[in-house]
Design a protein around this nucleic acid. Structure first.
Lengths: 327, 327
DNA sequence: ATGAAAGCGCTAACAG
DNA sequence: CTGTTAGCGCTTTCAT
């Protein structure tokens, strides 16, 4: 493997000059530059990131923490992150935590060991205490799920307002018996979306019913199926369901179909996220579109900014209600 | 940031000894070992991968090339790869090429620049010439899609046989008019699956019909929708469709439903891959299960083996026909 | 069992 | 404009 020394020797210059050419410094005479560039080509030389990274004490790697790679919600965000990262010569290490603290810790170690320059955390179940501690020494951004009091900059949407608009839509098309399929209340977004649900109902004088609110442990398809069974079994059956995730909503859709009921005639369904599959279901799913790609680009820009030592502010992005066949 | 020097100084030993403790060498007296370990704890020392990697001239990073992160087929494979990688102290860099040679080249550069120790390529559209060239100097494995004559070790399934069994199943349940929804013939797996389709038909004395074979440019949901429209428009309409990817099959499912026909009564559908969503559709999809997780673990083991300098042999794994509601 | 020292490949401060 | 040189943090050979 040829190194910078050999290039220097061959070109008859010093390693410093080769390095200057490599880094596009303009303090090199064009004659020398050309000579060096030719030598590089002839020797098929590729500068080693290993040496450069040690010297610069950076890894040019960004860590992305997601709970599950199978959840398509994160895919668009990741694309956004990747786009910005690549354009700034960073690479991304995609880390699936399974919301498992041990696995999480393996990945945290990567930044402690200088293998990564910073973290974008999207795991709602992240150990926030550890994250706060890390954030004192390393660059960290939260994306989508966040903690207000942690001091860690975040990018997200206004969950309360989005949820409010989804439920208001159901009310406006005539529904009064609206169920909420929520995830675990320990997550901030779950609490915020429940608040939006409540506000919409209260504002229209619809009394809250505890039995119309179902919590699921995870955001998977099967959990939506199970949860909707409980909802359909309620005496005074709801005529509409707002699910806090498309995956839950799609599970609900399938189960409602299976039980012989019709969507939206018997039960209307609204999801949340606008994942790709939400337009592939039958019927297609009315849902809240999060600006996922944008969220990714913003998160990446914030992180790189922070790595460079700048102060960064949290950002709230806009959402959108997408009306489709399920309502 | 504390380094190995400071630990050595504080513990009253040499850096060599600290390094030995760090790497679990048994040539250190337990007294010294304990002293060093305590110092490490006290100083909150974390060894830098940057220094270690340069010294060992390795990055401990594995590159995974996939055409699209949105295709769930790859997700299980990736989990398998990740499992093995983590257990051997490797990390994986997930690289979406979009089947775009330029993006591909950015990632190839990573191994040229020592930022990655090897590559697992799953992109059918990979530039095989470049890959072959790279494989001479670096460790490379192909996974799922491969090239027989490239000399690059691969792990895959017997596509011809899998396809044969899928079509035979359709014949056995009474179908004679069977359409093939294939992807681009430039891919080996597409040609192999078409051969299996042909063999099944010939074996049962069913004549091949050119108009029953449709090619799609990509494996996306929408492409399945478009392709099935053409199939349904054929005069003597097929009563069954074998699609070479679940995503295509799911697109077909939706479009058939939309056109008022019933699956499987009017048209039976078989997919390929057994992605998670294939059990979430209505009806659920009969499909060929590839051992994706296993494929991932095998690929990772092969790659790590190769990085260590060993010879590795290609592997063909078993597949399975999963009967569900769509046939 | 331990230490001294070389060196992995690179960048940048300094000198000229 | 260019060269000399130190040093990033670590592992490992060679002495002792």
């Amino acid at each position: 493997m040829t190194n910078i020394q050999q290039v220097a020797k061959q070109a008859g210059v010093s390693v410093a000059t080769v390095s200057r050419v490599l880094n596009g410094q303009n303090t090199v005479s064009s004659k020398t530059r050309i000579k060096v560039e030719e030598t590089i080509k002839n020797l098929n030389y590729e500068p080693s990131m290993l040496g450069r990274n040690l010297r610069n004490s950076e890894s040019r790697i960004l860590l992305i923490l997601i709970p599950s790679i199978s959840n398509p919600f994160y895919l668009e965000i990741i694309k956004g992150i990747e786009h910005v990262a690549l354009s700034q010569n960073y690479n991304i290490l995609l880390c699936e935590t399974d919301s498992n603290p041990e696995k999480e810790n393996i990945y945290f170690d990567l930044v402690r060991k200088k293998m990564a320059d910073g973290i974008i955390s999207m795991d709602p179940a992240v150990n926030i205490e550890t994250l706060k501690e890390l954030a004192e020494k390393y660059s960290i951004i939260q994306c989508s799920e966040y903690n207000v009091d942690s001091g860690i900059p975040y990018v997200s949407i206004d969950n309360e307002e989005a949820s409010y608009r989804a439920v208001k839509h159901l009310i406006q098309i005539g529904h009064k018996k609206i169920a909420l399929m929520n995830s675990d209340e320990k997550f901030l977004y779950a609490r915020q979306r429940e608040m939006g649900y409540q506000r919409a109902l209260e504002e229209h004088g619809i009394p809250l019913r505890d039995d119309y609110i179902i919590y699921t442990k995870h955001l998977g398809f099967e959990h939506g199926q199970q949860a909707v069974k409980k909802i359909l079994a309620i005496q005074d059956r709801p005529t509409a369901i707002f699910a806090v995730s498309d995956l839950l909503a799609i599970g609900a859709l399938k189960e409602i179909n299976a039980s012989g009921l019709h969507v939206p005639n018997d039960v209307a369904v609204v999801g949340f996220d606008k994942i790709d599959f939400s337009s592939m279901t039958n019927p297609t799913l009315t849902t809240i579109a999060q600006p996922m790609y944008k969220m990714g680009t913003v998160a990446a820009e914030m992180l790189i900014d922070k790595i460079r030592g700048n102060e960064v502010d949290s950002v709230i992005l806009n959402h959108e209600l997408v009306l489709r066949e399920s309502t």
